[in-house]
Design a protein around this nucleic acid. Sequence first.
DNA 1: AAAGTGACGCATT
DNA 2: TAATGCGCCACTT
Length: 103
Amino acid sequence: MRGDFSKKVYQVVRKIPKGRVMTYGQIARQLGKPQAARAVGNILHQNTSLEIPCHRVVNKKGKIALRFAFGGGKEQKRKLLIEGIKFKDKIHVDLEKSLISDN
DNA sequence: AAAGTGACGCATT
DNA sequence: TAATGCGCCACTT
């Protein structure tokens, strides 16, 4: 986590409440860089810190990260289920229920 | 310093 | 509706 952008990303991710999720794009937009969704994912991928609830970040379709840092997507899913987040299928969370609104 | 990478997302087929 | 293409951007080599 060298750059400023990383810090901002972590800052936002830390604020995601338990039981809710955000998309990479939302985070990018919230940081004023609507085109940086991919970079956000990249940064979270590198993140190994357990302090940051990066499991609460999914892509726009609600798909979890299959190559999650520890234990792959199954670990991410496990964490989300523990928080009560509902899944539409094996790899997609139910965004209608848990996605944080943009405003 | 240039080129490669990918936990993305939108447009186009 | 599913596949593919491709621009984007922080980070690593």
